[in-house]
């Protein structure tokens, strides 16, 4: 699986990839609500072949926090 985290987020949230950047988060991004948060984390799990903890699924609600969570599971992504 490619490491295109922003592309995966854009697809899951039905957004243009260009509208996302390293500072994107649930706070400042359209469609990124608590429900899509769960969907997004599931898609990232499937895409990168890892499993997040319940705490991570709930809390990693920004590009930076997701990248950090991925790093904890040994996945480095470039943004």
């Amino acid at each position: 699986m490619s490491g295109d985290l922003l592309g995966l987020i854009a697809e899951t949230l039905s957004l243009d990839r260009a509208s996302l950047n390293a500072q994107s988060s649930a706070e400042n991004t359209k469609n990124w609500d608590s429900l899509r948060q769960v969907v997004l984390m599931g898609e990232i799990e499937s895409g990168f072949g890892i499993e997040f903890s319940a705490q991570e699924i709930s809390e990693a609600n920004s590009v930076a926090k997701i990248a950090a969570a991925l790093a904890r599971h040994g996945v480095e992504v470039s943004l």
């Binding site: 608590s34 429900l35 769960v38 984390m41 499993e51 903890s53 319940a54 705490q55 699924i57 709930s58």
Partner: peptide, 9 residues
């Protein structure tokens, strides 16, 4: 279980 605890699904 991850989703149950995170989102009660």
């Amino acid at each position: 279980p991850g989703n149950y605890y995170a989102a009660r699904t």
